[in-house]
């Protein structure tokens, strides 16, 4: 396979995952706004932070207005990481690797882009927001499903999966990075309404509220959330789950090519050093420091994959 094609698949998958995560964050922000009084300016700021979009927003706008924030995240042409821009870029990558995709997978991406372009041609009225957000989730699910259902389990598939899980791990780590302080024991004023809302926010932004109850139990605690988002092996958005999938898919490539490369070493290190402790040890180490290090490792792993599989040269 061409190095460029591997890169195109990897980025197509990352960008699709990113768009979905952004949509989910908008949903969370909207949910908070609906469930509490006040302007919610701080909440939107932290939503933008978790989506790594706050700087651009603040460069353009002086105040934090919910509608403006939503528009920024969805479609503002000045935001190169808006959902619209991300999907357009994902689709460009899909065009680049058109020959590696099945007809169905390509059509799913292409029609996603076509529908979204139409849906986001104008500012979205608040009452239409749920419909648009579910369109994004559903269309992403359709893409994922068509890839799952029609693509061979070969190197093409591996690069798609690697892109998906690196982005997802990155996303979960960023949410933890922005919100880590509400999980710290010192800040845990047990039972306060404020913290409940914050915890709820975290769970919702990874669509984990239902899963949490099943996996951990009815009581939402900071430790429980951290355990669930970092170490749980069943939760498809936890760091542990994503890193294991990353390592697995990289290993498939290593076996397929009969070639172990530096990125495999890095993925092993990531799993061994960061996913094999219990949650107490992580808190002892410092949640913030831990998350920062994971983010750093993910970024360097991503670069190493680019080099090892010759995405660019």
């Amino acid at each position: 396979m061409l190095g460029k094609t591997a890169g195109g698949l990897f980025w197509m998958a990352r960008l699709l995952e990113r768009a979905e995560n952004t949509a989910r964050m908008i949903e969370t922000g909207q949910r908070i706004a609906l469930t509490r009084a006040g302007s919610g300016a701080d909440d939107w700021l932290s939503v933008l932070q978790a989506a790594a979009m706050s700087q651009g927003y603040l460069d353009k706008h002086d105040e934090m207005l919910p509608e403006q924030a939503i528009d920024w995240m969805l479609r503002d042409p000045d935001n190169p990481t808006s959902v619209m821009a991300t999907i357009a870029l994902a689709r460009n990558n899909a065009r680049l690797v058109r020959t590696a995709l099945t007809h169905e997978a390509w059509e799913a991406v292409n029609s996603f882009w076509m529908l979204l372009k139409e849906a986001l041609a104008r500012k979205v009225p608040t009452r239409d927001l749920p419909r648009i957000l579910s369109l994004i989730r559903e269309r992403n699910a359709l893409v994922r499903g068509s890839i799952l259902g029609t693509m061979l389990r070969n190197e093409i598939y591996d690069f798609i999966r690697i892109g998906t899980f690196i982005e997802r791990a990155d996303n979960t780590a960023r949410i933890l990075d922005v919100k880590y302080y509400v999980l710290l024991p010192s800040a845990a004023a047990v039972g306060s309404r404020l913290d409940n809302v914050q915890w709820d926010t975290i769970l919702r932004s990874v669509s984990g509220e239902g899963g949490y109850r099943l996996a951990i139990g009815p009581d939402v605690t900071p430790m429980g959330i951290a355990q669930f988002l970092i170490l749980d092996k069943r939760m498809p958005r936890s760091l542990n789950f994503c890193c294991a999938k990353l390592r697995d898919n990289l290993n498939y490539l290593a076996t397929d090519y009969d070639m172990r490369l530096p990125c495999h070493q890095q993925a092993d290190t990531l799993c061994r050093r960061f996913m094999s402790h219990d949650i107490d040890a992580i808190f002892d180490y410092g949640l913030h420091e831990y998350v920062q290090e994971v983010l750093g490792h993910l970024a360097s792993l991503s670069t190493q994959i680019e080099i090892d599989y010759r995405f660019y040269g």
Binding site: M1, K4, R310
Partner: peptide
């Protein structure tokens, strides 16, 4: 030869 950059070289 003219060669293409693949994931394996």
């Amino acid at each position: 030869r003219v060669a293409m950059r693949t994931t394996r070289g």
